[in-house]
Amino acid sequence: MKKVLITGAAGFLGSHLCDRFIKEGYHVIGMDNFITGDRKNLSHLESHSNFEIIEHDVTEFINIEGELDYILHFASPASPIDYLKIPIQTLKVGALGTHNLLGLAKAKNARMLIASTSEVYGDPLVHPQTEAYYGNVNTIGPRGVYDEAKRFQESITMAYHRFHGLETRIVRIFNTYGPRMRLNDGRVIPAFMGQALRGEDLTVFGDGSQTRSFCYVDDQVEGIYRLLLSDYSDPVNIGNPHEITISDFAEEIIKLTGTTQKVIYKDLPVDDPMQRQPDITLAKKILEWEPKVGREEGMKKTFEYFKGLSQDDLHKSEHKDFKKHIKK
């Protein structure tokens, strides 16, 4: 039985990856310090014989007993609310955490996949974004802590690949959604759905002409799984290329949820990307992958999940007290 370590296992994507690897017959070691992850996302796996969870901060030394075949590094704050409140921790998990895990992969002769992001492209001047585009990133802006953490993560991963011959994979994840997303984390889908379910007006930042492309979580996990098992070491975009403006998307949410609220507009945050659309030509060629779940189907599934949350969850302003998780 092959063994895989998944960091950020209690997060949205991490927990779905745990499910997939359990389904495929792996022994899964989940690792999370629960600063943004939620134990409830893994509660259905607690009694599974091929699953174990380790509470640990990946910026500290990591030791795993026995053999290890694969490492998937998904530990990182991923929402604007999180990484703007814990900027140093965001940088550390991308830098120190990735370094520690690459060292572990080298020691175990394990293949390592890192979760990069479309944010490496910044506010892109090329549209749609291909893997060959270097990006347009403000290194000292408020979003730079996340963008640069991911860009450094890619650089050190490729350095280990070239210098040490380590088997590495890099996935550039575009906007992904589905069950287990966290409400009130600043990302557009849970923000809109949370407002709709609470009877609040939907907030659009800027004039709503900025675009996003949303990929359902099952499609994202399939792409990541195929990339890990492929022979391709350069970055690969995984996302849904179907693009929509934020204003049009807000209207879709109103229609889906059956609410009567209106859309209100506020100032656009600093360095918020105006366009986001993946070019997935490479994923189609290398992985024979493309998304299967349309936005209408995926959004219905996601809305059903959010409708099942408790009133306490719907009205939480924050998910965590970050202070008690932060070391000096």
Score class of each variant (00 low, 15 high):
1 M>Y: 04
7 T>M: 04
8 G>F: 05
9 A>Q: 12
9 A>W: 00
11 G>P: 10
16 H>R: 10
26 Y>L: 13
30 G>F: 00
34 F>R: 08
37 G>C: 05
37 G>I: 03
38 D>V: 04
47 S>C: 10
52 E>C: 02
53 I>Q: 12
55 E>C: 00
55 E>Q: 10
62 I>A: 04
64 I>L: 06
64 I>M: 01
67 E>R: 09
77 P>M: 09
77 P>A: 04
79 S>T: 10
81 I>H: 15
83 Y>K: 07
89 Q>E: 04
91 L>D: 15
96 L>A: 15
97 G>H: 13
99 H>A: 13
103 G>L: 03
107 A>M: 09
108 K>R: 11
119 E>Q: 15
126 V>K: 14
127 H>K: 14
129 Q>P: 14
159 A>Y: 02
161 H>R: 11
167 E>A: 15
169 R>K: 15
170 I>S: 03
171 V>H: 01
172 R>S: 15
173 I>C: 04
174 F>M: 10
174 F>C: 14
179 P>L: 10
179 P>Q: 08
180 R>S: 14
183 L>Q: 00
185 D>T: 07
187 R>C: 13
187 R>T: 07
196 A>D: 04
196 A>N: 03
198 R>Q: 08
201 D>F: 06
205 F>W: 10
206 G>S: 09
210 Q>P: 11
211 T>E: 00
214 F>E: 08
221 V>S: 08
224 I>G: 00
232 Y>L: 04
236 V>C: 02
237 N>C: 15
238 I>D: 00
246 I>S: 02
257 T>D: 05
258 G>P: 00
259 T>L: 07
268 L>G: 12
270 V>I: 12
270 V>R: 13
275 Q>A: 12
281 T>F: 12
283 A>C: 11
289 W>A: 01
296 E>I: 08
298 G>E: 14
299 M>I: 10
303 F>R: 03
304 E>F: 00
308 G>K: 01
309 L>D: 03
313 D>V: 06
318 E>T: 07
319 H>I: 10
320 K>N: 01
323 K>Q: 15
325 H>M: 03
